[in-house]
Every structure is written in C-alpha cells, then in structure tokens.
Amino acid sequence: MSDKNSSNFKSWPVTLILGLFSVPLLVMYLYLFIDTFTNTAPGSLIPNELTFEHWRFLWETEPGTVSIWQVTLNTLIFASVMTLVILSVSLTAGYALSRLNMPFRRFFLAGVLTLHAFPTVTLVIALFIVLQFLGLYNTLIGVIFIKAALMLPFGIWVMKGFYDTVPWEIEMAGVQDGASRFMVWRLLVLPQIKPGLIALGVFSFLEGWSEYLMPQIFAPEADVQVLSVYLASLIADDQKFDFNLFKSIGLFYVLPVIVLYLVFQNKLMNIYGGGSKG
C-alpha cells in the first residue's frame, strides 16, 4: 500500500513478529555461506579461520566416489532434457486445448485439470515396476521421462493459460490473411507466448535441478547420480558429519538456482501463483 504511515497503524510490532519467525531461516542461510569458507571451533558460532578446504571436492574425488563434475553433468542433462520434453509436449497440447476444435476437447480439458491436481508420488511404486519391465531402471532417460510426464499436466495447464491470453483477433486476422491454422500457430501465436515459454522453461529446469525423490527411486546408482542424490547419500553415509563439506556442496548445488531465480523472478512468480491457481 502506498499510505504506509497512516496514523492508525504501527508497523514495528509486525516487523518484530515477522523478524522473530524469520530468524531460523536467516541463520540457516547465513551460515550456509559462512561455513563454506571458514572453520569454527566446536561450541562456538564465530569462525576462527578462513579456508578453502571445504571446496576441495571440486578438484579432488575421493576413492570409491564419483567426480562432482560427472554428477553435475548428470544433473544438467536430467534437468535440461526434462525441460525440453515438457516444453515441446505442452507447447502443442496447450494450444490444442486452448484454441482448436477437436473431438473429446471437453474430456481432455477435464483430464488435464484433474491430473494437474493429482498427487503423482502415489504412482512411484507402479512406475518403478514399469521401469524395471522396460529395462530403464537406473538410467537417466527413464527418470527423465518419468519426471517430465509427471510435470506434464502442470505444464500443459500453464501453457494453455498463456495461449488463452493471446487475442483471438490475431488468429482470426491470420486466418483471413490466408494462413492455415498451423501457420497461424507457428508464425503468429508462438511469438506472442515466448515470455511464457521462457518462464515455464526456467521453472521446469529448476524443478528438475532440485528434484530428489524421482532420481533417488529410479536412478540411484553412482554413474547416473544427480546432485541431490549425491549429496543425500553423502550425508547418509558419512560418519563424521562434516557439515562444512555438505554445505559447500550444497552451495555449489544451489548457486545456479539462485542465479536463475534472481534473473527470472517476476516471470517465475507468475507460475508459482498461476500454475496451481488453475
């Protein structure tokens, strides 16, 4: 609101309460940064030494483990291929649902709406067996397709929303100008939804980059591990609980997320809110 300082409202008690609740978060994320570059004596919270040793995972690979770069590459492949699949499939399906007369249109819309609310984790057991059957267990391609498919109803829904905002008159004009519906879509409509496409793309990429459960279930083996599984198994196996190392890997892991988020903040907000709003 613009009238911040109305006399009937004091903002400091609210700020105080909000601040108190936010302390755990602030502490957690502050020390995420601090602990990766410093050492702190047990029982203290003030670092006593500046060091880069926690980042040694970048250039040293402990025997019996996979190189971080291999894992990062896997994660990159996983997230970007998944994004590509989601984008290309929902790009056409969203348009068909938004704009085209076709048989079963009503049924398809109901289906997408239902599935987009459907809790996908309940399907993992069946999917696990499907992958076993297909021989795609412990492969990146299998988990890519599963994650992409599970996000698909959401992607189609968001995409349909973007198509809905393109004025009908543009398409009508295109048709009158002699273009087929396919040309209208390709030449006139697609350029209008480019921002939406980017937003959904970044969103999907971040989802894929952060995803833990699906790769953990469907591709846990070392050579196809993604960063989340790598970090989780490191935490689970380690006896010393070297939080500084975990945090350094964690920071390395989350850095692209933060960068992408800062760049595409406003567009992403749209999806966070709009996607689930239906």
Binding site: S88, V89, S90, T92, A93, Y95, A96, L97, L100, N101, M102, P103, R105, F108, G111, L115, F118, L123, A126, L127, V130, F145, I146, A148, A149, L150, L152, P153, I156, R181, F182
Partner: peptide, 24 residues
C-alpha cells in the same frame, strides 16, 4: 482442424497414458 488438434495432443496423450493411466 480436428486432426490438427488431435495431432497436437498426441505426444501428451501418449505420455499421460504411459506414465499416469497405466501406473494408476
């Protein structure tokens, strides 16, 4: 146009079939 629509839907339908309906 109906065919174009169904064609546009096909990849989505296949994936939904394989990864949603069959698993359910």
């Amino acid at each position: 146009i109906g065919l174009l629509g169904l064609g546009f839907m096909t990849p989505a339908l296949v994936m939904v079939l394989v990864f949603f309906l069959i698993p359910v």
